[in-house]
Design a protein around this nucleic acid. Structure first.
Lengths: 335, 335
DNA sequence: TTGTATGCGTTATCAC
DNA sequence: GTGATAACGCATACAA
């Protein structure tokens, strides 16, 4: 690995002169510049960004921590982040937390050691507050993504979970359903809580009493969706006529469960979901609240970049990206 | 951001003493250690890995460059890499090249500047040779993943594309097909070329003459699969009875095209694919060669780690991870 | 227009 | 046991 000194030696100049050529700073005679450029080319010299970063106390790198990179919601969001961050001159380090606060903690430590300039994070279950406090104390710019953090001051970019859930469940009620179940992720994750709240509000406003027997809580995973749906339909009493799946993976698992039980959607049961399902070759048929993950990622990255460069100052922003109700065939009107 | 000196000041010792406490190197009196540890805790001191890396000339970081993170094949592989690399003490920087040599080039430059200890890469279309030469010249350990690189000496971990394609096409022939099309990615990517070769060998060994009209070449993307399938069936003459899709995304697009054209699989046409399809809630029904992406990632990461630590030396290894033929319902016997 | 001295945060080497 | 010094690669401030 040649260093700036090797280049300098070869070009018969001082290292600083090479630096000036590279960064186009200060005056350089054409003749010297050419000599230096040749030396750079000959040695295939690449500047060491570690030393640069050490000197400038910035790495031009941000981190993105998400809970599950196999979920298309997050991959789309990641694209949004990458595109915008890249344009703003930042590299992105992508980290998978698997919804585990421990894994998240490990990554955060590594990232702090690596001196990342800022952090975009969808806090793992229950870990948000402590995380925000820690980053604040260290003055590391941070933007929460997709998930709000209760009781602390932090910028967040997200979808309207409460409103989306409310619309979805209201729609079910309008087409005649009254026994509506929710199968959800943890309430310790803001999206889980808010989707529950929207569900509840829709019921109450239409004079329906929420029933605990119609509520499942597990993880935002296909296996969880499968199990919750299965359990719901095993019971005799209070079987739902419609089910609200609180994210795409839960909906996926739930639909598989219905298929395995030989039930047809929407003839035997209606189902709606929050977030677009990954569709492969079936015609999209699930009524959903569609989110805009790419835009969420893009906006969050832009905000973080602005916080880092000082264009904006940290605040308690709550940037809500629109959602859209897409009515398809998975929920049918009850006579 | 407190530094080791802040800690030293607070604990009334020299910076080097703090370093010794952190790294458990050299002798430290219990009393001093406790004082230092308290100071570290109080300041929430986190060592700066940039300066460490600068000194040690290593970053304990590797990069993984893949062509499309939205493809489940790559996400699974990524998991394998992360798990093994993590256990070996390396962080992973994940980069998306979108099959673009330019994007790849940019990433490589950034990564070299960041002084990554090694690179795992699935070279973007046509870029392999130059990439290998460059890394070799700089002595950056590298392992090619999923794709071979023609004409240069480099370690690679991959699936048996030729053999897998051969088995798949032989199977089609055995159940009575003779008009078998291939819809493929670029032949400048080794997997594209080798799957073509396997296809061709199977035909020839069974006395069937390959026919150019039955070969589509585009990208490894759903849109390409859609278009190639559409084009194949538009023609009058030499319509295939079976189609071999050279990767999961091509198969996906192809099946969508068939659906849109109102054709039924396998009644109207048979289709088989290389690599498991992402299945959401349909019952898996496509006959495929299943790969083991997690294992590919894991093996590649292990090898790279060994190259970096010097346990192994760079060679021309060709590590082939097994594939499996999974027969389902998407191909039917011809009378 | 070019060069010298210095420091970013850390640790190996050698003293004390 | 502990500390002073120097060095990793680069670029700013200041000289020449």
């Amino acid at each position: 690995m040649p260093t700036i000194r090797d280049v300098a030696r070869l070009a018969n100049v001082a290292p600083i002169t090479v630096s000036r050529v590279i960064n186009k700073s200060g005056y350089i005679s054409d003749e010297t510049r050419v000599r230096v450029e040749q030396a750079i080319a000959e040695l295939e010299y690449v500047p060491n960004s570690l030393s640069r970063s050490l000197r400038f106390k910035k790495t031009d790198t941000i981190a993105l921590l998400v809970s599950d990179i196999t979920n298309p919601f997050w991959t789309a969001m990641t694209r949004g982040v990458e595109d915008v961050a890249g344009d703003a001159g930042f590299n992105v380090i992508l980290c998978n937390t698997d919804e585990s606060p421990d894994k998240q903690e490990n990554y955060i430590n590594v990232l702090l050691q690596k001196q990342v300039d800022g952090i975009l994070v969808s806090p793992a279950e229950g870990s948000g507050q402590e995380l925000v406090r820690r980053m604040k104390k260290r003055e590391v710019p941070m933007v929460a993504i997709d998930r709000q953090v209760e009781g602390v001051h932090v910028d967040v970019v997200r979808s309207d979970s409460e409103g989306g859930a409310y619309r979805l469940v209201s729609y079910l009620i309008e087409i005649g359903h009254r026994d509506i179940a929710i199968i959800n992720g943890p309430l310790s994750i803001s999206t889980g809580l808010q989707r529950y709240e929207g569900y509840r509000r829709a019921l109450l406003e239409h004079g329906i009493t929420p029933d605990e027997r119609l509520m499942g809580i597990a993880q935002f995973r296909p296996e969880s969706g499968y199990k919750m749906m299965f359990d719901l339909l095993q019971r005799r009493e209070r079987r739902p006529t419609a089910v609200f799946a609180a994210n795409n993976f839960i909906a996926l698992g739930a639909i598989r469960a219905l298929r395995d039980m030989g039930l047809s959607v929407p003839d035997d049961i209606s189902i709606v979901g929050f977030d677009e399902l990954p569709h492969t070759f079936e015609v999209p048929f699930v009524t959903v609240i569609a989110q805009m993950p790419y835009e969420i990622g893009a906006k969050a990255a832009k905000l973080l970049a602005d916080l880092i460069t000082g264009i904006q100052t940290p605040d308690n922003r709550d940037i809500v990206v629109p959602v859209e109700l897409i009515i398809r065939r998975s929920a049918r009107a009850l006579k």
